[in-house]
Design a binder for these strands. Structure first.
Lengths: 113, 113
DNA sequence: GTCTTATATGTCGTTGGATGACATATTCAG
DNA sequence: CTGAATATGTCATCCAACGACATATAAGAC
């Protein structure tokens, strides 16, 4: 299994992995984080989110992380973290994005950005 | 209809539009151009290509272009070109890609590129 | 002349991730 | 007690991508 077998990532999946890049988070926290991270442009539906989390678990790109014990509203939290594979996939996807932008600059004639 | 209604673009669609950014091309030429443009990494299947071309026609992102009269092997060529809408969508997608990379740099801690 | 290769367009069934609607549970503030 | 924010989850549907297959033509090799 190479990381390229998981590419390309779709937008929601990309942001979910990115949200977990530095620290473990539970689902709802990912939801809010992605919204902030994208400047409010991306609002994950819960169907998209929890579907993706289960798929990513199956694929081994994320894994369960010990839940904090703090009291909080709502159903019990489930925290997740990136696996090494997940990180590699995220980096590979970032690289792919860079290649696409290089190609776009060539054809659309932008100097940089 | 805003250009954002067509986003995000999938990889094949993005490269097809990009291939038409500067000059009209027929399907098979797009196939070869995308392969070159991506450094050989992306090889469109014909199902993907012709399916996408018809969809993009429906959506008004591309339009038929007068066919050259040159003799050539194979079935008669059908040339396509970007519409103004198509160009705007392509630019919007490029912008979206840039935002994603900005977010990735923040979280993955890359200095640039 | 025929065979192969490159060119060229097309159809079709399947898959897989995204999406929106809906359901459920808990804590806290007013 | 009621509503809002928090929190997880299911389900049916949609749609672009994908791979396999089909068809046609021109040119060059032999």
């Amino acid at each position: 299994m190479e990381q390229s077998d998981y590419l390309p990532l779709q937008e929601p999946t990309f942001f979910i992995l990115l949200s977990l890049a530095n620290e473990p988070r539970h689902g709802y926290a990912i939801l809010k984080d992605v919204e902030a991270l994208s400047g409010g442009k991306i609002r994950l539906g819960t169907g998209t989110l929890y579907g993706a989390l289960n798929r990513l678990l199956d694929q081994g790109l994320i894994q369960r992380s010990p839940n904090g014990v703090a009291s909080h509203p709502g159903k019990p939290r489930k925290a997740y973290q990136l696996t090494q594979t997940g990180l590699r996939v995220l980096q590979a996807e970032t690289s792919r994005l860079n290649h696409m932008l290089s190609a776009a600059r060539l054809r659309l004639g932008e100097t940089h950005t």
